[in-house]
């Protein structure tokens, strides 16, 4: 009964408490690579041998992702990018809203890219809400493939498709599958990077998983 006399614990309180305790997995450790269509079966076979979640067959996914930007008209700051993801193969699942920070590649000694990442599940009203907020669609794509899990590590092997304007079937943007190895962890758990490197080495020479800075690549080409 005495709890009623105390100030109620608000969501903000528990959030700041969690932040203080550093238990929020808001850092994404990431390695990326690709595998040619011709070799994807070999890779899947190897992953089936290495990963945990293979007892009930390979997990597949078919998602659509839309990237929104929120520009700041007063300052010329970089626009805030928000990503919305929706499962096309499981319509009853919530939308996923995601913020991804700037990738930090660090120096040679750092095994993976580290970037801040916040995920939250949302209802279907999300798109409308973002639109009212002033967000603009930057680009969208669909991504279809396989998901594997090994301990805390997540491995996705997926095909990225351009959303076609007409009712034509979506067009793949390359002859390869995108391979991503990622872990979400609270700040400062850098040891996981070494585990990821070790796992990535087991996929060589089939796939070369690396730290890739897409910002720099975008400027180059």
């Amino acid at each position: 009964m005495s709890a009623a006399n105390l100030a109620p614990i608000t969501a903000t309180d528990s959030l700041s408490q969690a932040l203080k305790a550093n238990i929020i997995p808001n850092q994404e450790y990431l390695l990326q690579g690709s595998v040619l269509d011709s070799a994807v079966e070999v890779l899947l076979h190897r992953l089936r041998g290495l990963c945990d979640n293979v007892d009930a067959g390979t997990e597949t996914f078919d998602d659509q992702e839309v990237c929104f930007s929120l520009r700041d008209p007063n300052q010329q700051a970089a626009p805030l990018m928000l990503r919305v993801r929706k499962a096309l193969d499981a319509r009853d699942m919530p939308f996923q809203l995601r913020y991804i920070g700037q990738p930090d590649l660090g120096d040679k000694s750092r095994p993976t890219v580290v970037r801040s990442s916040l995920d939250i599940a949302c209802s279907g009203m999300l798109i409308e809400f973002l639109n009212e907020l002033g967000c603009r669609i930057e680009f969208e794509y669909s991504v279809k493939g396989y998901m594997f899990r090994k301990g805390r590590m997540k491995i996705t092997v997926s095909k990225v498709f351009k959303i076609s304007q007409s009712s034509m079937s979506p067009e793949p943007i390359s002859q390869s599958y995108l391979v991503e190895l990622s872990v979400l962890a609270p700040q400062g758990q850098d040891a996981i990077g070494e585990d990821m490197r070790a796992f990535a080495d087991q996929l060589r020479p089939l796939v070369q998983l690396d730290k890739i800075d897409y910002k720099r690549l975008g400027h180059m080409s």
């Binding site: 690709s34 070799a39 351009k162 690549l217």
Partner: peptide, 21 residues
Amino acid sequence: THSIADTHALVTAVGTGKGLR
């Protein structure tokens, strides 16, 4: 079994939307 050019194309597409706009 892999091509660096494809890796870069895919990563930039997903990261910045290059080729998707």
